[in-house]
Every structure is written in structure tokens, then in C-alpha cells.
Amino acid sequence: MGNTLPNPHDTLFKALLEDPERAGALLRESLPKALTDKMSGDPLPVDGSFINENLRGTHSDRLFQVALQDGRTA
């Protein structure tokens, strides 16, 4: 009867962001055009986290790296 997922929105966004092509589409739709115009290719997932160990059960983050048109990465 009830929702069995503790954080359904987190689960949805994690699933969307696991695929670099979908993550790229989501980021391009969400970020300002001035930033997305500088991106070259799709963002790639990076291991790591900024979430405090005590909060990991309730919060999550996804880190990405993307090549920029000038050869740098962000």
C-alpha cells in the first residue's frame, strides 16, 4: 500500500544520472546556456562525494566531469 522507496526522488535522479548521455541531456536542459555552450561531449561520472558520512542514508550526490571546448575540464 505505501511507498517502499525511502527516497523516491533520489532514486529517480540517480537512475537518470547513471547514464552519461541522459545526464548530459539533463544538465544541458538545467544549466544556463552560457555554460552548456562551452561543453564538448557528455559529462562522465567521477567517483567521490561531498556528503557527510552521517547523512549518506538521506542525501546523495553525483559528480561529473565534462570536457570543455577549450581543452580544459570542468
Rank of each mutant, 00 (worst) to 15 (best):
P6M: 08
L31V: 00
E18S: 07
D47H: 03
T4Y: 12
D19I: 05
P20S: 05
L26H: 05
S30L: 02
P8F: 09
F13S: 04
T36P: 00
L27G: 01
P6D: 11
K33N: 07
G71I: 06
S30I: 03
L5F: 12
L44G: 09
R62D: 11
N7I: 12
A34E: 11
F13P: 02
K33R: 04
D47P: 10
P45F: 02
A15D: 10
F50N: 12
E21S: 08
P45Q: 01
D61I: 07
D42Q: 10
H59E: 15
R62G: 11
A23W: 08
A34Y: 07
L35P: 03
R62K: 14
E53W: 04
I51S: 00
N52G: 11
L5Y: 12
M39A: 03
G2H: 14
D47F: 08
G24R: 00
A23S: 10
D19A: 01
A15Q: 10
K33P: 06
H9D: 15
N3Y: 13
L5S: 15
D61Y: 07
E29M: 11
A74I: 00
Q65P: 05
G2Q: 14
D47R: 06
R62V: 15
L26N: 01
T58H: 13
G48T: 05
F50L: 10
I51C: 09
P20R: 03
L17W: 06
S49F: 07
E53C: 09
L12M: 13
N7R: 15
E53V: 12
T36S: 11
R62A: 14
